[in-house]
């Protein structure tokens, strides 16, 4: 499935909640401790990460095909 993940890194505090609750291991923390996308293709747009991010730093949409 085609999804779009938007990170607002300036808001991210690297708590790892999105990483823990992602069922598809799409996300990880980078060397600066911020959320980053490591397996974009695996994302199923379930929204679990966005739902529980305490800092409103990650947003996921289904990609609208052009």
């Amino acid at each position: 499935m085609s999804t779009e993940i938007l990170l607002k890194s300036e808001r991210c505090k690297g708590c790892g909640i999105c990483v823990s609750f992602c069922p598809k291991k799409v996300l990880g923390l980078d060397t600066l401790g911020h959320c980053s996308v490591v397996h974009a293709d695996a994302c199923i747009a379930c929204g679990q990460c966005e739902l529980r991010c305490p800092d409103y730093a990650i947003f996921v949409d289904k990609k609208v095909s052009a």
């Binding site: 808001r11 505090k13 690297g14 708590c15 790892g16 529980r52 305490p54 800092d55 409103y56 947003f59």
Partner: peptide, 24 residues
């Protein structure tokens, strides 16, 4: 995200610790 209009954008990110449940 229509709920974002209810936040004072210039005050974010908030002061709470990483992972604090208050943001949720």
């Amino acid at each position: 995200r229509t709920y974002e209009k209810y936040f004072r954008q210039n005050r974010l990110p908030h002061i709470w610790c990483p992972g604090c449940g208050n943001g949720i």
